Amino acid sequence: MKTELMSTVFLSEKRKMALLMLLEGPATVDEIKDSLTGTTSAIMAQIKILIEEGLIEQKEDKYGLTFVGRIILKKVKPLIEALNILEENKEFWGTRDLSGIPDLLLDRIGDLGKVMVYEPDLNHLFEPPKELLTSLKETKNACTFYSYFCPSCPNNYSELANKEVKFDLILTQSVYERLRDEYAEQYNAMMRSANSNLFVCDDNIIKLGALSITDNLMLIAFFNKKGIFDHKKVISFEDSARKWGKDLFEQYKEMSEKVK
């Protein structure tokens, strides 16, 4: 029975996608067809299999998950989402050091949804992606962590401070000291703002390159498995990714000390 159910869910992309759709609520065959690719007869063939396996049922003109189907899909959905994330950029994820992510958040890696992997050319190696710069100009809230010195960080965040944008900025000790000692004007602007908070953590306590969450995106940058920061970054505009990023940021905040 286990093998049959697993095969039913995973051996057909149409069945898998139909089940995920029905997890959101019952739908007609036309609504299912609109969300998938294929003819009505092809969709009905998959629906018939799902009914025979006891995963969905028909009530009037709509199809919905059975209790068994809902139990299975609630467990399977995170796995499907994680596979979608990891398979789409298999080479990238296979070379990343993910030790900076707690197990509970690794279990939710599928929350990142549809992502883009940003890899700058040599002329823009030390510049943040334009998507992040644009978002910072428009956002009303920001949470950012850096374990390396980003040349544009002092100006970007002093501008946010001058606009009284609410933000939390976590820096490693060495990065913080450089900001404080070499960019006094920008540092003082951040410290004067009632809406900006600076936090400092030990240089070796957080094994991550960078993390930024704004009102419309989440950006994260990992070291590779050799411990080298190669400037590759992941960007997602999904609400679930922003929630995932905020949960990670809050854990980092607990490992940091606020600058007063």
Score class of each variant (00 low, 15 high):
F237M: 12
K233M: 13
D34Q: 12
D61S: 14
T214N: 09
K166M: 05
I85R: 15
S196F: 01
D97W: 01
L160N: 02
S158M: 05
F126K: 12
D121T: 07
Y176F: 15
E13V: 12
N195D: 09
Y63F: 15
K75G: 15
M44V: 05
S41K: 15
L23P: 00
E164P: 00
V234C: 08
L217S: 07
N204F: 07
R108Q: 15
D121E: 10
G54T: 07
C153V: 05
L55R: 05
K137C: 04
I47Q: 08
T37P: 09
N224I: 00
A142W: 01
I85M: 14
I49V: 13
L11F: 13
G38T: 11
L104K: 15
K233R: 15
R15G: 06
Y252F: 15
S193Q: 01
A161N: 05
P129M: 01
D230E: 13
L169W: 08
L86Y: 09
L136N: 04
D34K: 14
T37R: 15
D215Y: 09
D247K: 14
A184N: 08
D97M: 01
I43M: 10
N84M: 10
K140F: 01
E238K: 12
G100A: 04
K232Q: 13
M6K: 08
N141F: 02
D203L: 02
I49W: 00
T39C: 06
K77W: 03
L179V: 02
E127F: 03
R108D: 14
G100Q: 04
S7T: 11
R178M: 12
G110R: 09
P26F: 03
E24Y: 05
T8M: 09
D61G: 05
M17A: 13
I72Q: 04
G245H: 03
L104A: 12
G38M: 11
E52K: 10
S158A: 13
